[in-house]
Design a protein around this nucleic acid. Structure first.
Lengths: 236, 236
DNA sequence: TACCATTTGTTGAACATTCATTCAGTATGG
DNA sequence: CCATACTGAATGAATGTTCAACAAATGGTA
């Protein structure tokens, strides 16, 4: 329900489009580009602005400037500021979704591998970087008061959560753990989101590597039989 | 460093002031009130507005209306909108800080009890309710682009984190666990923040009780010798 | 107590700025 | 030369801030 049914075709085609948008950096200005390329270009500029200035300071002018185009351009391709932002969120959501689905597929059939792949995917550089994390957080901050965002913003949505629960259930059986799968899945996914939040704040020494380490540690203690602890690496 | 050194006196006195501000609901309008009461009243109205409308839609007019006062009043008590928001954030931070310190003190000397008390404090109704969570998240969304917020927003700040690390270190020794205390502390505190985020979104069935359950489950698996699992409560 | 002066808190209209949106006009590719 | 993409100045609405006027408290004086 949360996820619009959109063939994966667009997801991959979009990458190609964006690529071409990047390549023709010199041609952007003044030259005509296909509607789709322009829209992606504007969405990228929106993410830039969100990351740099925050939601409340993101203006149409800044987006247009960021894309190297004129002021009226956004209202031409998107009807309004609101629709631009929704399209941006949708774009990020699609990208995120495609990313973890891909990781899951590559992981093979072993549930333990699948869970680990999902966790690792969350801290992949293509997904988990300051720019995108900042943009996500900008939307989260507004989500509560905007139903449209609320539906989209829970990136780790019902489907994602269900997969987590299923994996936890399977592991529980094969490892004879005592916990409630739903509870453990909640703890795990919440921790992933929390780590994102900390990475975004970026004040401390928390890095992508540290975050992944913490997440892996969680897996080790929660599913010791499936993820034998690699502890003892560094002991101060 | 993050926390302004402010005697606890104000923290408790403030509660009393706010109480009196609530009681004299009828007298608010037209009657004079002490400077501190007015400021608290405006801060509360700001939190209301943040929770209801989100950061970007929170206006001076809305705050003034919410407090039942005139338009110019905020600029009289606080110099500007920015300063009002900073004062609001500072207020929430002080409240949060006082709350967990209090919980920690009440917990006694046992590290396991202390850690559990800290976790439970995070989901106390006085701290963890939709209104305040929404306000926190509104600030988080803007924190990256505003240094002032960034410094304050890491509510679970360096001090808090240090305490977590210390407790994890102690438990590790007394329980002969294998993990790195810093890593485990990061996982734990990130999970708490993530649970807050989910509670704020409030889309799903995640409640304060569920969140606390998940956090407790984490403690059980991470420190099995200190928190013997209470599993088996409900088995579907 | 009565009276006035001064300080302090409050109001609301006026002002200036910022910003999303519109649209008539321009340029470009086919 | 038509259709489509694009421009950028004009417009109007929203909003933070200022300020002159007003009211309530305070304090001093007789």
């Amino acid at each position: 329900m949360l996820e619009t049914i959109r063939p994966m075709k667009t997801a991959v085609a979009r990458e190609a489009l964006l690529e071409s948008a990047r390549k023709s950096e010199a041609e952007k200005r003044g030259r005509k580009a296909s509607k789709e390329v322009r829209q992606l270009q504007l969405i990228e500029a929106t993410i830039d602005s969100l990351a740099k200035r925050g939601y409340s300071e993101t203006t149409m002018a800044d987006v247009a400037d960021g894309a190297g185009l004129s002021r009226g351009i956004v209202n031409f391709h998107f009807e309004s500021k609101e629709k631009l932002l929704i399209a941006t969120l949708q774009h990020m959501y699609d990208e995120y979704s495609a990313h973890w689905r891909n990781a899951l597929q590559k992981a093979g059939d072993d549930p333990a591998d699948q869970l680990q792949a999902l966790v690792a995917a969350d801290f992949d550089r293509s997904i988990c970087n300051k720019r995108k994390l900042a943009a996500w957080c900008a939307f989260w901050g507004e989500a509560k008061s905007r139903p449209t965002y609320q539906a989209l913003s829970s990136a780790r949505d019902a489907v994602y959560q269900t997969i987590f629960i299923d994996l936890c259930t399977t592991l529980r059986q094969s490892g004879s753990y005592a916990y409630e799968p739903q509870v453990m899945a909640l703890a795990l996914s919440a921790m992933l989101e929390g780590l994102w939040l900390r990475l975004m704040m970026g004040t401390e020494d928390t890095t992508r590597e540290t975050a992944l380490l913490a997440a892996s540690e969680f897996l080790s203690v929660a599913f010791p039989k499936h993820y034998p602890s690699k502890a003892g690496a560094t002991k101060p």
